[in-house]
């Protein structure tokens, strides 16, 4: 790779991940050799201190703002410090740091601006209503962005400098809609999107989110986000008006 690894920033959004964050930071640092930023999204368990001890830079939100806001903060930091690529990795150990280089390749060789790591391409399965929901999302989003995206809610992503410039201004913050909305925003901004298969592990710690009623609500909200997306004002315009 021609671009120096020092120009890559790994962003790990973390909320109460003290059990795993140290290990993940160490793993990412040894696998990629890049700088690591942990955005502590208002943890109460000392996640930030553990990340700092493992050699990461840490930004702490004063209270919980959601994963989307944490990524937005991380990307704004990357923009400020002049990083030319960002890799977003979960702090709970689900993402295999070795796959991260595969996501960074298209971004670093300039062939894509936003690379999404898909767990489905590597044989991950979900069942029932969740599977139906994710397939539906995949179909709608793929049609919108003109690229086949099987794992629309994946939080394992690489961003180019173009993508950093766009998302440093405004990154979607609605919980669980942020990943999908970011894809639609990226497409609107003319960024080139690509999907690559990645290996996902079972979580090293922490708990999975959401009961059935809440999942339904989140899915409906996501539908509102997707259906209204083409009609809405750009977020940065709305913020200033």
């Amino acid at each position: 790779m021609s671009v120096s690894r020092r120009q890559v920033l790994a962003i790990l959004p973390a909320l109460n991940e003290v059990q795993t964050v140290r290990e993940v930071v160490t793993e990412v640092r040894s696998a990629l050799g890049c700088d690591v930023l942990v955005v502590d999204d208002g943890s109460h368990d000392g996640t930030g201190a553990a990340a700092l001890a493992a050699g990461a830079s840490v930004i702490r939100h004063p209270f919980n703002l959601g994963v989307g806001a944490a990524i937005g903060t991380g990307i704004a930091f990357a923009r400020e410090r002049g990083y030319s690529a960002v890799i977003q990795i979960d702090a709970d150990g689900q993402h295999d740091a070795a796959s991260a280089s595969a996501l960074l390749v298209p971004v670093l060789d300039g062939s894509a601006d936003l690379v999404v790591g898909s767990r489905f391409a590597s044989g991950y399965k979900v069942s029932g209503a969740r599977a139906f929901g994710m397939r539906y999302l995949s179909r709608v989003v793929s049609r919108r962005v003109g690229v086949e995206i099987t794992d629309t809610t994946s939080g394992f992503r690489a961003f180019s400098s173009n993508a950093i410039a766009i998302f440093a201004v405004s990154y979607p913050t609605e919980y669980l809609s942020d990943t999908v909305e970011a894809l639609l925003d990226a497409h609107d901004a003319g960024l080139r999107i690509e999907e690559r298969p990645v290996v996902m592990r079972s979580r090293m710690g922490g708990t999975a989110s959401s009961g059935r009623l809440r999942s339904t609500y989140l899915f409906l909200r996501l539908l509102v986000v997707i259906l209204f997306h083409p009609l809405r004002r750009r977020r940065e315009q709305a913020a200033t008006s």
Binding site: R221, L222, V224, R232
Partner: peptide, 16 residues
């Protein structure tokens, strides 16, 4: 209001 981003998506679900 949704178009102008004055209403959050979550509240929109409720009011719809």
């Amino acid at each position: 209001t949704l178009r102008r981003r004055r209403l959050s998506e979550g509240s929109a679900v409720l009011w719809i």
